[in-house]
Design a protein around this nucleic acid. Structure first.
Length: 490
RNA sequence: GGGCCGUUAGCUCAACUGGCAGAGCAACUGACUCUUAAUCAGUAGGUUGGUGGUUCGAUUCCACCACGGCUCACCA
């Protein structure tokens, strides 16, 4: 509100009149608040009294308990929080006058000695206060804090400043990304950067964002996947590559979807999808352990146990979770599959090929049950235009997806490297496009040409970082693991 | 995009079947030199998301709009 703001503007000019720089350029602290607590937290009150320690710390004032000619401040630098005791007879006159003009949210630097209060709390007895920045807008209330999700997303800076657990989520997210990089780097992978502006939106089945480059006068798509570029690098002899960056898909927003999201894609030559399933188990279990300190992780009402991995073929999963007793052979019969779809009230387009229908049946009957880490493998060829066909079943491809907490976390396969087959698959996708499937793949002639120079047998995988972060931070919505989720203008 | 729910002071929330819009915290004034949701006394703060309608009277009922949440569709 303007009135509250005006009072604080007025206080800043009073601070200036006292001779304090209202916007100094630096503050040399001796300890981060976390460091001060680490160094002096173990010391008793007597020890601190015998060997007085002087520190300079800086941060934002989050609480204030005044007592006339003295008062306590809670000072936070985001990482840590410490109490400051401002006492009139310990401060220069100008310093105490400054203290009296401080508000919640202001940044200050404090030089002082550490002691323990009567209740034992480690506290900085202020000998000098340096003004660093004024907070003109009132912070949320100390007890209930900021809970309105709309304001939390729109003003993430406030959310982060007052909600410690929000900060913890994003610290964890950062650790996930760092550890994934470390995992791949340790195994000889090369991190590469591939284009985000794509002339053809390829590598996945999704609707792209469109944009335009003026100088070239051509349309581009924001990438829906880096896949086809990464495999071109495999053709070129970069045998292990990964790209960990943003992906854009012009689709609905939900608790599990954001129009831009982060994906790790990695490719490994001379390997197949079984190798990657093994790698995925090791990788994800290791990350969970590093980030959460345990292989058992709470998610919603579940305990996800990374000691217990399951592998099921897609057909096995359907048979296991389908309400009607069926066998895998039945899934080769279109009439049976359609009957089962109707039975579970699934919506489908009767013009779709059998493979798509099996995919829908899987999603309808099985997905919700895949809480514990589960690798679903062997997918219908129609759903997978870039995967290698299974040698003993031409209707299926060597592909797997990782499900945890009923969420699709990863997707990998043995890469199709037969250029003739790849061209035919693209042509089949073009037909699907003509039937009105906007997400069907476009023809990519250069990619077919790259394969025509020969690509070694290769396996590749994509991991949705945001969903992995949701899982490991026990977040119900993807917006809680994205710092600035997209919202309509206020 | 469809369905359901929500929007009241800076923040967190009240206000019965329509009858003068309230509390706590934050703010301001005063008291208080070991508090930690500090305490005590006092003050101020609102076009109840917006626009219309019904009514003597609307935060409350109705319509439309805006923004958000959940959910379905689609995907990772």
């Amino acid at each position: 509100m303007e009135e509250l703001e005006a009072i604080r503007v007025q206080k800043l000019s009073q601070i200036r009149e006292l001779g304090h720089d209202p916007y100094p350029t630096f503050y040399r602290y001796t300890h981060s608040i976390g460091q001060a607590i680490e160094d002096f937290g173990p010391k008793s009150g007597e020890e601190l009294e015998q060997n007085p320690a002087t520190v300079r710390v800086a941060g934002r004032i989050l609480a204030h308990r005044p007592f006339g000619k003295a008062g306590f401040l809670a000072l936070s630098d985001g990482e840590g929080q410490v109490q400051v005791y401002a006492k009139k007879d310990q401060l220069p006159e100008r310093g105490f006058q400054l203290y009296q003009l401080l508000d919640l949210g202001d940044f200050i630097g404090v030089e002082g000695t550490l002691f323990r209060t009567r209740t034992g709390e480690l506290t900085v007895l202020a000998k000098e206060i340096t003004f660093l920045a004024k907070c003109f807008l009132p912070l949320p209330e100390k007890w209930h804090g900021l809970t309105d999700v709309e304001i939390r997303y729109r003003r993430r800076y406030v959310d982060l400043a007052v909600n410690r657990d929000v900060r913890a989520v994003f610290v964890k997210r950062s650790i996930i990304i760092r550890e994934l990089r470390r995992f791949l780097d340790d195994r000889g992978y090369l991190e590469v950067e591939t284009p985000i502006l794509h002339p053809i939106a390829g590598g996945a089945l999704a609707k792209p964002f469109k944009t335009h480059h003026n100088a070239l006068d051509m349309n581009f798509y924001l990438r829906i996947a880096p896949e086809l570029y990464l495999k071109r690098l495999i053709v070129g002899g970069l045998n292990r590559v990964y790209d960990l960056n943003r992906i854009f898909r012009n689709e609905g927003i939900s608790t599990r979807h954001n129009p831009e999201f982060t994906m790790l894609e990695f490719y490994q030559a001379y390997s197949n999808y079984t190798d990657l399933m093994d790698l995925t188990e090791t990788m994800i279990t290791g990350i969970a352990e590093k980030v959460c300190g345990s292989r058992v992780v709470k998610y919603d009402e579940h305990e996800i146990d990374f000691n217990k991995w399951t592998r099921l073929s897609m057909k096995e999963a359907i048979v296991k979770f389908c309400p009607e007793k069926i066998d895998e052979e039945a899934l080769k019969d279109r009439a049976t599959v359609e009957r089962l779809l109707k039975q579970v009230h699934a919506e489908y387009d009767p013009r779709m090929p059998l493979g798509n229908l099996v995919g829908i049946l899987f999603e309808t009957v099985a997905e919700d049950h895949l809480i514990q880490p589960t690798l679903i493998y062997d997918y219908p060829i129609e759903l997978s235009p870039l995967s290698k066909v299974k040698s003993n079943d031409p209707a299926m491809v060597e592909r797997f997806e990782l499900y945890i907490g009923a969420m699709e976390i990863a997707n990998g396969y043995s890469e199709l490297n037969d250029p003739v087959d790849q061209r035919d698959r693209f042509l089949a996708q073009l037909q699907a496009r003509e039937r009105g499937d906007e997400e069907a793949h476009e023809m990519d002639e250069d990619y077919v040409r790259a394969l025509s120079y020969a690509m070694p047998p290769t396996a590749g995988e994509g991991i949705g970082i945001d969903r992995l972060a949701m899982l490991l931070t026990n977040s119900a919505s993807i917006r809680d693991v994205i710092l600035f989720p997209h919202l309509r203008p206020e």
